[in-house]
Design a protein around this nucleic acid. Structure first.
Length: 155
DNA sequence: GCCAACGTTGGC
DNA sequence: GCCAACGTTGGC
């Protein structure tokens, strides 16, 4: 089993939105970056655990954990002309973008803030804090996962 | 294949 | 809103 970090802008989709549908699965749509797409398609597997990271917001950081409950399949928003994520260059026969389904596992009592993460020398190799990194789907090593879990206030 | 122009991400 | 650090596009 592998560990991941998925970024989301909470003003668009937050962990509270995920929590409000806790017993349902949620399609993680809208990934429009090839490197992130490749990870979703080739490496993210059923049962993997995912840190949900809030970005572009007052307090960026890790808000909780989700579980992958369906492996990669075509992101339907790419075919919808009404969608913000519509891609006219993609086709149903040859879908360009993929998504997975996730389900909430845990909401942290407090966000593990980017500030805390940056302040921890043991996490300086994390993709998240490497200079210039903007990847929205990132692998997390088991070591980093355990350190971050220990930093989180669990319910 | 090169690379300039442009668009996006995301912290601050 | 600023801007660094990307990624993408398209002419050549």
């Amino acid at each position: 089993m592998a560990y991941w970090l998925f970024k989301t802008e909470p003003q668009t989709f937050s962990i509270e939105d995920l929590a409000s549908r806790a017993n349902q699965t949620e399609a993680w749509d809208g990934v429009r970056n090839y490197q992130a797409r490749n990870l979703l398609r080739d490496q993210v597997r059923y049962g993997d655990l995912v840190f949900i990271y809030h970005s572009s917001c007052p307090q960026p950081g890790i808000a909780g954990i989700a579980r992958v409950v369906r492996e990669a399949y075509p992101d339907y928003t790419q075919f919808d002309p009404e969608s913000h994520y519509y891609d006219p260059k993609s086709s149903e026969e040859n879908a360009r973008w993929m998504m997975v389904d996730v389900q909430l596992a845990e909401v942290f009592a407090e966000i593990v803030s980017l500030k805390q993460i940056k302040a921890n020398p043991a996490l300086e190799e994390m993709t998240l804090v490497r200079k210039g990194n903007r990847l929205s789907i990132q692998p997390v090593t088991p070591e980093h996962w355990q350190i971050l879990l220990a930093m989180a206030k669990r319910c």
